[in-house]
């Protein structure tokens, strides 16, 4: 589903990704682990198309199609979803207005009919009940005054409503207590499907106890340094990232 080959990405003058190669199949949950400051969030931004994150070399393909020339909205309509590490607060935009605009924009881009209001309301109601998102939260402006846990649940709610093909979770566990982590993980697990892939970016192994990955990739120095199965996460938990940081210094 996702094929990244020899990707080099610069932010300003600085090269952050230095020849990253990664392949994720449909139905797969791929965990990307690595020390802070190694380019994990940059990877999530370049896949989703954030301005200022320019690929200078290499390619990113989604189901065979090069997506680097598409703008963020086009990528979203093709099924890419980024659950933000720090979801932004948008005080003037009502949450429901935003959800409807997003769902219908993607449907329009795919040539599908827009959702009628009752259908939209029902979808939101069902998904928010599962994720413990209160009606009160839905009535507020988008993410405005939400706690860290509420923001993360709102991200997963959006993911459930938008039904992406490739979901990237950027440090979704950061700032979550154990109960909130379980709710978020349950939400993700409920969306696991043969036609959908996940890239789970995390610093700690903890999240992976709740979202079991199929593959684990160690990222350091702007590259994937090592790939393996779930056992690799446990090894990292024990030994830390010292092996990879040492290589960096060498």
């Amino acid at each position: 589903m996702l094929e990244i080959k020899d990707l080099h990405v610069s932010v300003g003058e600085r090269e952050i990704l230095k020849g990253l190669t990664l392949s994720v199949k449909a139905g797969e949950v791929a965990a990307i682990m690595g020390p802070n400051g190694t380019g994990k969030s940059t990877l999530s931004y370049v896949i989703s198309g954030r301005e200022g994150y320019e690929a200078t070399q290499g390619e990113v393909r989604l189901n065979g199609e090069n997506i680097l020339d598409l703008d963020p909205a086009e990528r979203a309509a093709k099924g890419i979803f980024l659950a933000f590490q720090y979801p932004v607060e948008i005080p003037g935009v009502a949450t429901m207005t935003f959800l409807k605009a997003a769902m219908n924009a993607q449907r329009r881009a795919r040539g599908e009919e827009e959702l009628a209001t009752p259908d939209f309301m029902k979808r939101v109601k069902d998904a928010s009940a599962q994720l413990g998102v209160s009606q009160e939260m839905l009535r507020r402006p988008l993410n405005a005054g939400f706690s860290g846990g509420e923001k993360k649940r709102m991200e997963i709610l959006q993911m459930a409503l938008l039904q992406p093909r490739l979901a990237i979770l950027d440090e979704t566990d950061s700032g979550l207590d154990i109960d909130a982590l379980r709710v978020v993980a349950d939400g993700v697990n409920a969306l696991r499907a043969p036609e959908r892939a996940f890239v789970v970016i995390t610093h700690y192994q903890r999240l992976l106890e709740y979202i079991r990955p199929d593959t684990v990739h160690v990222m350091a120095q702007g590259r994937i340094m090592r790939s393996g199965g779930p056992e690799l996460a446990l090894e990292l938990e024990e030994r830390g990232y010292q092996d990879y940081i040492a290589q960096e210094a060498a």
């Binding site: 948008i90 935009v93 993607q106």
Partner: peptide, 22 residues
């Protein structure tokens, strides 16, 4: 804010309008 809205599939122009209206 613009990136957040566009990353959800809302075209840039529409995202700008939402932000301005808000």
């Amino acid at each position: 804010q613009l990136f957040y809205l566009t990353a959800r599939g809302i075209p840039r122009k529409e995202a700008e309008s939402l932000l301005i209206e808000g």
